[in-house]
């Protein structure tokens, strides 16, 4: 219940935060909302010597539209994402995903950046980020860069961010015309984390054929992934429930499935297929298809 002692640092700017992150790259941790890190510190599963709290850094809490994309500051809470009018209109997958996270209190304090940087394999945001081809902006003393989400998640609790890099923003393409997206989740009854979470975005062409499909899957493996075989199997096809079901059978192709006390690998794989079909069907329906 009680964390080990640490030194606490409160940067006021991104630059200052980056300097601290560089200085304490070895034994420091960056704190955003704290809802991934503090629980681990209380269980003494994480015991950083230095804690760099981004909570007072100016300008990391925003949701805005720029160049046809939606950009969200890393310290934006799940709650803010859940209720943002801009997102409901332009990128409804994000509010839908936010709403699936934890509970009200967690959503009030937990942040999108904190969650993505933590890379929990059962977190919800990674699925949405993958389904939307998100880009993640990091800042360090050597400058900033945008990392495509396809390169972001490396393994269990591991991202491609370098030591000393801080995640500051995430960029998502807005919902194109004739498109719909959806998040379908089977939550663990105790933790609320995703046993399986599938985010999908589908764009139909003018004839109602699937022009583009993106499917992000979380909870199933050591990291969230894009179900490319599902995407390939449904692209160019009519979004009939039969076609969606058939395509969804590829949801775990080539994936090393997690098994645990709650759901064996086999069952998880089955759930992934079912929830992929459900997310796709809902996305198609929202795209105006049948």
């Amino acid at each position: 219940m009680i964390p080990e002692s640490f030194e606490y640092h409160v940067p006021k700017t991104v630059d200052e935060a980056a300097r601290m992150a560089a200085e304490f790259a070895d034994d420091g941790k960056v704190l955003a909302g704290g809802h991934s890190l503090i629980p681990m510190m209380k269980l003494r599963l994480a015991s950083p010597k230095h804690l760099i709290d981004l909570g007072r850094v100016e300008g990391l809490k925003y949701i805005r539209e720029a160049d046809g994309k939606i950009e969200i500051g890393a310290l934006t809470t799940h709650f803010q994402a859940e209720y943002a009018t801009l997102l409901k209109e332009k990128c409804p997958l994000l509010p839908e995903t936010a709403r699936a996270i934890g509970d009200v209190q967690v959503r009030n304090k937990g942040t999108i950046g904190g969650s993505l940087a933590h890379a929990d394999p059962a977190a919800d945001w990674p699925a949405a980020a993958l389904a939307l081809d998100a880009e993640l902006k990091t800042v360090s003393t050597s400058g900033e860069r945008w990392i495509p989400v396809s390169e972001f998640f490396v393994d269990l609790l591991t991202t491609s961010m370098n030591p000393g890099e801080i995640l500051t923003a995430i960029r998502f393409p807005a919902l194109p015309v004739r498109s719909g997206d959806a998040y379908a989740k089977h939550a663990h009854p105790a933790s609320g984390f995703a046993v399986v979470g599938v985010a999908a975005r589908v764009t139909l062409d003018e004839k109602g054929i699937v022009e583009k499909a993106r499917v992000g899957v979380t909870g199933v493996s050591s990291k969230a992934y894009r179900a490319s075989s599902v995407e390939a199997a449904i692209t160019g096809k009519a979004p009939s429930s039969k076609n969606l079901d058939t395509a969804s059978l590829h949801a775990v192709d080539g994936i090393d499935l997690n098994g645990d006390l709650y759901a064996s690998a086999e069952y998880r794989g089955h759930l992934a297929k079912v929830y992929t079909a459900r997310a796709l069907a809902l996305a198609v329906e929202r795209a105006g298809g049948k």
């Binding site: 219940m1 606490y8 409160v10 704190l31 704290g34 809802h35 503090i38 629980p39 209380k42 709290d53 909570g55 709650f79 009200v104 209190q105 967690v106 009030n108 304090k109």
Partner: peptide, 12 residues
């Protein structure tokens, strides 16, 4: 905002 005060540091 409702928060779980066991998951917030007093300094935060």
């Amino acid at each position: 905002d409702a928060v779980k005060s066991c998951t917030v540091l007093a300094v935060q």
